[in-house]
Design a protein around this nucleic acid. Sequence first.
DNA 1: ACATTATTGTGAATTTTGGAACAAAAAAGT
DNA 2: ACTTTTTTGTTCCAAAATTCACAATAATGT
Lengths: 208, 208
Amino acid sequence: MKNRKSVIRLSRYKNELHRFKTQGAVRIVSNDLAYAVGVTASQVRKDFSLFGISGNRRGGYKIDELIAWLNKILRKDEVQKVIIVGAGNIGSALMQYSGFAKEGIQIIAGFDIDPLKCRRVGAVSIYPLEKLNAFVRDNGIGIGILAVPENAAQPVLDIMVGAGIKGVLNFAPIRLRAPEECVINSVNLVPELENVIYFSNAVREKSE
Amino acid sequence: MKNRKSVIRLSRYKNELHRFKTQGAVRIVSNDLAYAVGVTASQVRKDFSLFGISGNRRGGYKIDELIAWLNKILRKDEVQKVIIVGAGNIGSALMQYSGFAKEGIQIIAGFDIDPLKCRRVGAVSIYPLEKLNAFVRDNGIGIGILAVPENAAQPVLDIMVGAGIKGVLNFAPIRLRAPEECVINSVNLVPELENVIYFSNAVREKSE
DNA sequence: ACATTATTGTGAATTTTGGAACAAAAAAGT
DNA sequence: ACTTTTTTGTTCCAAAATTCACAATAATGT
Ligand SMILES: NC(=O)c1ccc[n+]([C@@H]2O[C@H](COP(=O)([O-])OP(=O)(O)OC[C@H]3O[C@@H](n4cnc5c(N)ncnc54)[C@H](O)[C@@H]3O)[C@@H](O)[C@H]2O)c1
Ligand SMILES: NC(=O)c1ccc[n+]([C@@H]2O[C@H](COP(=O)([O-])OP(=O)(O)OC[C@H]3O[C@@H](n4cnc5c(N)ncnc54)[C@H](O)[C@@H]3O)[C@@H](O)[C@H]2O)c1
């Protein structure tokens, strides 16, 4: 019912709504939002209805109200504090990504096993891995980003889970195991790119 | 039929098969591969059957044969040359990512509008954006990674498509429009992270 | 040789997801 | 006041994806 895909779409709606708002719009109809996001209008309405969001049967939805609803559902009422483990290429890029702060996601600290990496990247301080447990407990952190090499990923995840992390966004290209009270989403770039390669060739061949 | 998801799974299978192989395995049954990847055994068999891969009704699949098949389907017979447009945080991280080369994906050049960025990152040289068109044509490049700021994404994509790019992996959090002969996959990290946040809270609340 | 066992390959059943359609409601016009 | 128009909310339908289940069959054991 409230599945991964519908929640991802909510994020996208929110994103586009901000855009509409900065362009001065006050109300929006499902059709226009659907077009902007690239789904059908029924999909938009069904998603909203699923999460108990309702509009007005003429004049559509008030953008401010919609954003408020989405913010509530997506926990934007409070700043979400997130740690990043692994301050290498991808970890550092994420630490400097302004898109998180814009959405109320604060990268509060980084952790790495390499003392040379325990410096400062952008606004984020990086600490030795041994400090992770205490830091997570003391600050009540629930969410972490995992950006360590493949072979370190599972043991590092175990440390994170042991410290109390309940949600992880993982970049290592490996299947991780965690107790079911910990949610794990993985971003796998090689398969994504291979997918693009596959379908771009498939399209070309079809048209030949 | 041959949909996005099944192709992504093929990449994952290939990944895990390499792992099994380095551990000395010669054959594998659908069950074990399924467990490693995190899907059901029927899913594995259906995927293989969909792409015309067959095993042996006792003794499963020969790992080498499987890998050869997957490599063929995923175009690993030749090195895939890919460009990256936008050499900022994420673009540079990708240029230094060894995971691509390992899978036969070569980042052959970068492009950026900022002259200061037109240096060398790892093994990748970065050129001014104006050189993109000629470079793509001369080298017959078909695939590109788009890592420029949101507001530059659509115009830059248009340039890429104009130059002959047929497949794009996009990191800008915006819906892009391209002619249908150009395949676009987007990676949206904010929604991914918001998804983790949503479900980690949902799990916690359910158990309360 | 024959029986047994393991495991695929696939058609059918089921579940999930998305889309079309339309009655109900609210606004706008007259 | 009431008619028309617009747009939602929801039900019903279709398509897509996944899983089940089992006959077909290849290896192994006796
Ligand atoms: N770079 C990319 O663009 C990219 C893209 C997709 C996926 N990934 C994946 O992300 C992960 C990191 O990639 P990267 O390119 O940033 O690698 P990297 O080598 O640049 O960075 C890895 C960092 O993790 C640290 N580390 C190693 N072991 C650790 C441990 N046990 N505890 C804490 N820190 C540890 C290292 O010191 C290093 O700083 C890899 O799994 C990679 O496959 C990277
Ligand atoms: N940094 C991250 O971790 C991250 C994560 C997810 C998504 N993204 C997205 O990726 C994109 C890039 O993010 P970033 O953090 O690397 O930003 P960045 O500002 O570090 O890099 C952007 C680069 O693009 C270049 N650029 C700007 N306009 C250009 C143009 N017209 N043509 C060519 N190059 C141009 C800039 O010179 C800069 O080098 C953004 O859309 C961002 O939302 C970034």
